[in-house]
Amino acid sequence: MTDRPALDATPLHAKHYADGAAFVSAPIVENVRLARDTYRLRFEAPAIAATITPGQFVMVRLAGIDDPLLGRAFALYDVSDDRAAVDVVYLAHGKLTTALASRQPGDRVEVWGPLGNGFDGDEREIDALLLVAGGIGYTPFLACGAEALGLKEYGLVGGVSDADDASPPQKTTRPRLAAKSVTFCYGVRTLDYLAGADAFRAAGIDLRIASNDGSVGHHGLVTDLLTQALEESSDRRRRVLCCGPEPMMEAVAEICLAEQVRCDVSLETPMACGLGICFSCVAKVKQPDGEWDYKRTCVDGPIFDASQIEW
């Protein structure tokens, strides 16, 4: 399996095949409620925990049953301090996530990952990293913000999962996001859906909240918070990362385009496999010729430069 032609550079191939992925049956370590209908699932999967990076995702499936049949995609929320377990946060609102909410420690899930590209680093340090999320779209940003501030590193490989492996841990060559400050503009429906606020504050992230009904933070849109954060940082090198409902991401992309600030979005399109084999999760992505083409979010994303998306 070693002397195959190196064809991945051709434009017809996707950019991010799941070459580092493992498929594992993972015991649940914790499954705790964070907010209304919102839970953090921790499962033991050293092979995934050792390599996954912020913005990447895993597919999770309930082991041993055919209904629900397919896995669901969940962004990396965090990796446990002992690098043995992966955390994801989910909203219990569908068939799988509702069933998942009643699973107990020791129960098993089937998991495959890491998948997708993750947030792209930059050659030079950013002064102000601005994160924008709506609802459950907040989940990729704890790991992302913590890493950007130098508090935690993800994606150490080698010597982690296998006790007999004598090779020392190595850092991946992935360029990491690094920023002097991280501001997180977080929009929620209502106060009772607000999840993870303490974790973000503990990581030194400047957390700003908006809610639809004014029950917490700014009474209005999360884009109001972004506009203000952009004004405050107008003399600094900035970058925006965004995840949430599509109309919100489109609005954020428009604001960033007008401000000439690079904006990356994490797309959540319905996905059956996460691996690039089902062609379900396509999004309209602009091509070099100016036309758009359907690209698989799982193996060409899920993180895209917002200016490349045909909304």
């Binding site: 799941a18 498929f23 193996v299």
Partner: peptide, 12 residues
């Protein structure tokens, strides 16, 4: 239609 072009699953 269920295996892409095979390259996708080379690691699994």
């Amino acid at each position: 239609g269920t295996f892409g072009y095979a390259r996708e699953l080379a690691s699994l």
